[in-house]
Nucleic acid binder design. Sequence first.
DNA 1: TGAATTTGATAACAAATGTTATTGCTGTTG
DNA 2: CAACAGCAATAACATTTGTTATCAAATTCA
Lengths: 192, 192
Amino acid sequence: MFEQLKDRFSLNERQWKKYVSCFKRIQVPAKTTLLKEGEISRKVFFIEKGCARVWFNNDGKDVTFQFFFENDRVSSTESFKKNIPSIVTIETIEPCTLFIISKNDMDRIMNDCFEIPELRAKFIDVLYDRNIHYMKHCLSFIRDTPQQRYLNLLKEKPQIIKRIPQHYIASYLGITSVHLSRIKGKLAKEKK
Amino acid sequence: MFEQLKDRFSLNERQWKKYVSCFKRIQVPAKTTLLKEGEISRKVFFIEKGCARVWFNNDGKDVTFQFFFENDRVSSTESFKKNIPSIVTIETIEPCTLFIISKNDMDRIMNDCFEIPELRAKFIDVLYDRNIHYMKHCLSFIRDTPQQRYLNLLKEKPQIIKRIPQHYIASYLGITSVHLSRIKGKLAKEKK
DNA sequence: TGAATTTGATAACAAATGTTATTGCTGTTG
DNA sequence: CAACAGCAATAACATTTGTTATCAAATTCA
C-alpha cells in the first residue's frame, strides 16, 4: 500500500526498507485542518485517497490557491523549507487517507537522494517543471478571461470541476462564485 | 568587469579562469530581439547594463510577462531547459551591455557546480525561491486589485515604474494602459 | 425522518475595467 | 526645421465583474 511512495522516490529495495518506517498512514474526515496559518510546517503529506486545498485568509475572505488529489504531495513549501510561519492553511475537502512524514525524516531522505546523480537530476527537473507550471499559471491571469480560465481548467484538470465545490473553484480562478455561475450558465446556453 | 558573473557562480580563482572564456560581452541597441518566439533558446544572457523584457504574442496583442535589469539572468527557462521552441520573445528595452554564454558551456559549468555540495544546495535554494516568487505573483492576481498590484510594484520594484514605458507595465499588471493611467490619476488626486 | 447547513442559480443594481478615439507632448530622424 | 513615431492623459461609451439578496435543491447530521 506504500507503492506510490516507493515509486515517487525511485528507491531500490534496500533503501526502501530503510525509509518506509518514516511514514505514518492516517485517515481524517473532510474539512480537517492539516496545517494552520501561522504555524510552522514540520510535516509533508502524501494523499493516498481524497483531496485537499491550500487557502489563505484575505481580509476575512477565504481564497483558495491550490487543489491536491491522489498521489499529490502537499505542504507549505515556503514554511517547510525556511522554517517560518505559514501564510496558508491546508485543509482536506473530502475524507482523506494520508501518509505523513516529518521534516527531519524527509530532509534525511532528500540528502541521501542527492548523493545519487540520477535522483538529483530528477529532483531538479521537478523543481524546474514546477517553476514552469507556476509561470504559466501567472500567465493565464494576465492573458485569459475568467471564462477562458474556466474552460482551460475543464479541459486540463476536469477532476477539479467534478470533485470540488464551486465556490472554491471560483476563488481559485480569481472570480466570485456568482460570476462563475454566470459563466457556466452562458456556456450551457451557447451549447444548445 | 566580469565580477558580477564570478560572484554569481561563487567560484574560486582556478575554476573562474577555466570558465571566464565561455562568456562573450556584447552591446546592443534598444528594442533588440535576443530570442524570438518559435526559436529554441541556446543562450543565456546576463545583463551588465540596461533592461529587457519577456513578452508573448496573444492574438496579436503584445503581453509583457517579466522585466530584467542589471545583474539579472535572462533566458526562456522552458525552451532552454527542454530544447523546445520558445513561446516568448526576449527584447531589450534600453540599450544593453550583455554577457552571453552558450547552452553547452552553461551546462558544463552547472554540472561542475553540482559536484560541490554547497553550490548545489545554493542552486536548489535559488530554484525554491523562484518557485515561491512565482507562487506569490500568482497569488497577487487572485487576491489583489489592479490598483493594489500597482502600489505593490511601486513599493517593491520602483525601478520598473521609473524605467519602463507605461504600456508595458500595464500588460504586466494584467490591465490596459488606459486603466493604468486612470489608476495613477486617481492616486494622484487622493494624495492631494 | 426532519432540521440545519451547504451549495448553486438567478436577478437587480453598482463598480470596475475595456474599447475607441482624440489630443498633446516628447524625442528621433531625415 | 519639419515630419513622424512613440507615449501618456482623457473622455464617452460598452462590457465585464462584483455585491447583495433571495430561492431551491442537495447534503449532512442529530
